[in-house]
Amino acid sequence: MALNFHFRLVVLAALSLLGLLALASQATARTLEETSLLLRHEKWMTRHGRSYKDDVEKAKRFQIFKENLKFIESFNKTGNLSYKLGTNKFTDLTIEEFRATMLNEDKSSPVPKTSKPASFTNESLAQIPYSLDWREHGAVTGIKDQGHCGCCWAFAAVAAVEGITKIKTGQLISLSEQQLVDCDPNSSGCGGGNRTEAFQFIKGSGGLMAESDYPYEGVEASCNTQTLGNPAATIAGYQKVEASESALLAAVANQPISAGITLDGTLFHGYSRTNGIFTGYDNTGDCGSGHYHAVTIIGYGTSHKGMDYWLVKNSWGTDWGKNGYMKMARGINAEGVCGINTSASYPIA
């Protein structure tokens, strides 16, 4: 009996030791994982030039960074998506902070009356190029960064004017978004605006200044009338595109086109340097709702796997997406990815 009791004690001690070793191993693994994440955060900070005011703020941003990484890794494991998410300069922001900083709330606003949307019914799609990139024709300025000012509408409108100006005059001139932010009375500056109203303002005010003459500040200010002089570009008006992919395709074949998209922001928050073609949630084209963003379509094409796409220029700097650009799928649904087929317009020179 004494021997059996002693044996049981030995077994219990061994089991306890194994349990402690297992807990120690788990703790070590957690420590190693945490250290790895801390190093990853430090590398991310260096890459994006990020610094924090104190250790408390840094710890807070690290926790947000970890949560965003967890979502990114989980998202990339689900389904057979044509793209993946990754880290970008927004990875230490919560989705709520990202929406408030980079997107506008999706509020309905009256749109100026214009002629019937162009359907391009007399234009044969068979005559347009199989693929097109307006950068190759010198009609696209470099990627710009709107910063923390919610004026994507101004950047999308200006990019379209820059494009048609180059096509008509042969000159590619970087034009002033700040002029629209400060001077367009129908906009709310950094609080949002309307691309078609911006075109209307450009026409009515006599044109846009060069960016070098009215540089971007990233904050809304009073209109600097003393700066306004001879415009670098003028337009005769604008035109809405019929809400169909074929009409939009024909329009982009003529010039860069400004377009509005509807989204909840989650996927754009994590969109990173990828060659994948963006298809929204579950490859359906749905991007959620509640917020609005404006971009410029600067071309189209077909991937080597046979997926059609739009080539899109954004205004969030070169450290978002593919050096500031993204490819959005065509042919997924009638409205297009994030509704991109439904709210496009362009300036007439």
Rank of each mutant, 00 (worst) to 15 (best):
A247P: 07
Y281S: 01
I257F: 12
F155M: 04
T141C: 14
T141K: 06
D182M: 07
L39E: 12
I277W: 06
S343R: 15
S272D: 10
F278C: 03
Q179M: 11
F5K: 12
E73C: 06
S315E: 12
Y130V: 14
T196K: 09
T28I: 11
M45V: 05
D133N: 15
G218M: 10
V337H: 02
L208H: 00
A59H: 04
D213R: 01
R99W: 06
E33P: 00
A156C: 03
S36Q: 14
G204C: 07
L267C: 07
L17I: 14
S16I: 01
N88E: 05
L208Q: 04
V11F: 13
K43P: 10
H304T: 15
N104M: 14
G301H: 05
G321D: 01
G150M: 09
E217W: 12
N341W: 09
N76C: 12
K116M: 10
I235W: 12
S74F: 06
N80D: 12
G150T: 08
Q178D: 12
K305S: 13
F7E: 11
F7G: 02
F268T: 11
S272P: 09
A232C: 09
S174R: 10
R40V: 07
A2N: 11
A236V: 06
M326V: 12
S272Q: 04
A24G: 15
G204W: 07
G86W: 01
I348G: 07
I72E: 03
S188V: 15
G192Q: 11
A27Y: 08
S16V: 02
K322I: 08
E335G: 11
A198E: 01
K66I: 13
A243K: 11
R8M: 11
L263H: 04
K305N: 12
I167K: 07
T78W: 10
G170K: 07
V111Q: 13
A251H: 06
L228V: 08
Q26F: 15
S36A: 15
H304R: 14
D213K: 03
E57Q: 15
L249E: 00
K84P: 04
L9E: 15
E105C: 01
A100P: 01
I261G: 00
A27E: 13
A29M: 13
A250Y: 06
D264P: 02
S258L: 06
I202P: 01
G317E: 04
S188L: 15
E245P: 03
G204F: 09
A259M: 01
E96T: 08
E33I: 05
M1Q: 08
A236W: 08
E177S: 07
S188F: 15
S303E: 03
C287E: 05
P347Q: 08
A157Y: 03
G206S: 05
S108F: 14
C149I: 00
N254Y: 08
A334V: 14
L38A: 11
G321T: 02
A13S: 15
L132Y: 05
D282S: 15
